[in-house]
Nucleic acid binder design. Structure first.
Length: 599
RNA sequence: GGCCCCAUCGUCUAGUCUGGUCCAGGACACCAGGUUUUCAUCCUGGUAACGCGGGUUCGAAUCCCGCUGGGGUCACCA
């Protein structure tokens, strides 16, 4: 890893708050923080901002750490995460496919605390924050305040009614000693005494940004529950952990003057700031959990129109009926993430992907997501030999070339079609064996049914048959769906039957006749493998002096009900000889019935 | 509404700092052909953008101003 002499000790951090899954926006921030540290041979810290006691959870923390690791983002300092061993784990795959730049095989976990700067959970650092808060109070740079939430809300509403901006105004008759005495026995927050001066922020992406003094008020630095607010905690931790570069979303730009003022007041350094452009939905709205909720509701509304009872029956294992009804009935309500996840699995719905875990579940490859995310707001500015822009690269490339100078300023819309195309291209570039192992490890968690239907050599056949037809790992399910269908449950497409089985061509046998004929050839085949099957079908067509399509298409109809399937040899081998014979016989009977009934 | 940020094809963007090589390049999507026993893959070609108005200049996508539009933020959330 190249180290930059001008920046001998770059330290970056990603500091998620564990209130849910890792949002793609957060994932990109983490990626850039990681890449910047790697590029400069520096240190990347992961810190968990769990000062909101009510909303934080341990499971969310674990989920975020795992999603980062899945993308191949490893942190030098922070909570430890044990890596799954073995080449089949998603994490190991990420490493292999991104050029093996991740943890060496000997490294079984990421994180740690070599500099003794932890703990990395803010909830465990309360005393540290209190020391600094006390110092600010002692220096008269902060003070206790006793306003109730109701009072503040009332003032805010009043300001809004007057069409003015609410600013917290210190009581003109404020008496410091009295306030300190009162604070000993009364619930209170601590507010920072914002200096009466304009704040200048230098941002590596946006340039110079100035905030006039009157627009920043005395903000709370310690809540009534004793926990610090984000502003205080982030400033103290960044200083104590030696953070030199802060890369974060542009929604934080307006917080920066507060942080700079706090740093000045406490005698801290101001890190280099780089505010990253935001990421939106294609329609310009925010990418939020809500999108999933809305899509799911729309899906169910449509389904219920068709068959209400079936939907309720099918949903039953995932969600309480009352809860389900209440949610469907109230467009403003939102389902809990867990319930929504269960329903999604049960109904095999595809909902808009918002969180990293969504993309993982939908069958996107980690290196593709990383590539695509990097392109949202950054690009290497390099041409390929053929004159096209370089836009396909892996995490290792980003780690070697990422720089702040090439960050964009304007927000971008998340184009799933392009991500899908990238994913498809990457799958097309894999060989069948690599695809098979990649899919199998994914399917273990996300499509156990299909994995179970492909024992032994069928896994390789199935993946070879599906790969070229897949844009995501999940697509294997759609492509090979005919394998899972019961032999006796195939529904025949009318047009396909007419075109390929019953249509009469002067001087040639019908598809139905050819199908019946080829059945005997296939039934006697041993071994029943793709090569043998293809050879047998070819031989049969030759003997009957028809083009191969005249034989192939009827078989497809018998196999899948439609005139579409992966290559025949592979497809037939997947269903197996017995299944195939059953399907052909059933198809012949069904079509003969149609012919007899119709004439 | 106050404050702050942003503005090139439908979308992601190159080009903007260092004005001419740009009647603006690439990618995805879309459209039209071609290859293929089906589907898909694949190949070829095409449509398509400098938000508007003023400056500055011999010359502006590039510099300046205004307008318009979009976004962020205004919590004892982070």
């Amino acid at each position: 890893m190249p180290s930059d002499p001008a920046n001998p000790s770059v330290i970056t951090r990603f500091a998620p708050s564990p209130t849910g899954f890792l949002h793609v926006g957060g994932a990109r921030t983490a990626l850039f923080c990681w890449a910047y540290a790697r590029r400069h041979g520096g240190t990347f810290i992961l810190r968990v901002e769990d000062t909101d006691q009510a909303r934080s959870s341990e499971s969310a923390t674990t989920g975020i750490l795992e999603d980062l690791a899945w993308m191949g983002i490893d942190w030098d300092e922070g909570p430890e995460l044990a890596l799954e061993g073995g080449a089949s784990s998603p994490t190991a795959n990420a490493g292999i496919l991104t050029g093996g730049q991740d943890a060496p095989p000997s490294k079984r976990s990421i994180g740690g605390d070599p500099r003794s700067i932890g703990p990395f959970f803010q909830a465990q650092r309360i005393e540290l924050y209190n020391e600094h808060i006390q110092r600010l109070i002692d220096q008269d740079k902060a003070y206790p305040a006793f306003d109730t939430l109701e009072e503040l809300t009332a003032k805010r509403d009043a300001a809004r009614a007057r069409k003015e901006t609410f600013r917290y105004i210190r009581d003109p008759g404020f008496d410091r000693d009295a306030a300190l005495a009162r604070a000993k026995s009364e619930a209170h927050v601590i507010r920072f005494r914002m200096p009466d001066e304009a704040i200048h922020v230098r941002d590596e992406v946006l340039g110079d940004v100035n905030f006039a003094a009157e627009h920043v008020d005395d903000f709370v630095i310690r809540k009534v529950d004793g926990f610090p607010t984000y502003h205080l905690a982030v400033v103290v931790d960044d200083e104590l952990m030696g953070v030199t570069h802060v890369l974060r979303g542009q929604e934080h730009l307006n917080n920066t003057p507060r942080h700079v003022a706090l740093q000045k007041a406490m005698g801290f350094r101001t890190p280099v700031y780089a505010h990253l452009p935001l990421i939106f939905n294609p329609d310009g709205s925010k990418m939020s959990k809500r999108d999933k909720d809305k899509a799911a509701r729309a899906h169910f509304m449509a389904e219920i129109d068709r068959d209400r009872d079936r939907v309720y029956r099918q949903a039953a294992p995932a969600i309480d009926k009352g809860k389900f009804e209440a949610w469907l009935g109230d467009k403003k309500s939102q389902l809990e993430t867990q319930d929504l996840g269960e329903l999604q699995r049960l109904f095999a719905m595809s909902l808009p992907e918002i969180d990293t875990a969504d993309f993982r579940g939908a069958g996107y490859l980690p290196q593709v997501l990383v590539n695509f995310l990097a392109l949202l707001g950054w690009n290497p500015g390099v041409k390929n030999d053929d004159g096209t822009d370089l836009e396909r690269f892996d995490a290792a490339y980003i780690a070697q070339h990422f720089d702040l100078g090439r960050l964009g300023k304007s927000a971008s819309k998340f184009d799933r079609a392009k991500l899908l195309a990238f994913n498809a291209d990457t799958i097309q570039a894999m060989d069948d064996a690599a695809f098979a192992s990649c899919w199998a490890s994914w399917a273990k968690d996300h499509d156990a049914a299909m994995l179970g239907a492909l024992p032994g050599e069928k896994l390789a056949w199935g993946c070879a048959a599906a790969r070229q037809r897949c844009k995501t790992l999940r697509d294997v399910r759609t492509v090979l769906d005919f394998v899972l269908v019961d032999d006796g449950a195939i529904e025949y497409d009318e047009k396909a039957v007419k075109k390929n089985l019953t249509k009469q061509v002067e001087g040639e046998p019908t598809g139905l006749e050819l199908l019946a004929g080829v059945k005997d050839v296939l039934a006697g085949l041993d071994p029943f493998d793709p090569e043998a099957i293809d050879a047998a079908i070819e031989g049969f067509a030759e003997k009957k002096q028809v083009k191969i399509g005249r034989v192939a298409q009827p078989i497809r109809v018998a196999l899948t009900g439609a005139a579409v399937s992966p290559p025949l040899g592979l497809s037939l081998a997947l269903v197996g000889k017995d299944g195939l014979v059953r399907r052909i016989e059933r198809c012949v009977r069904a079509v003969q019935g149609i012919v007899a009934g119709g004439s």
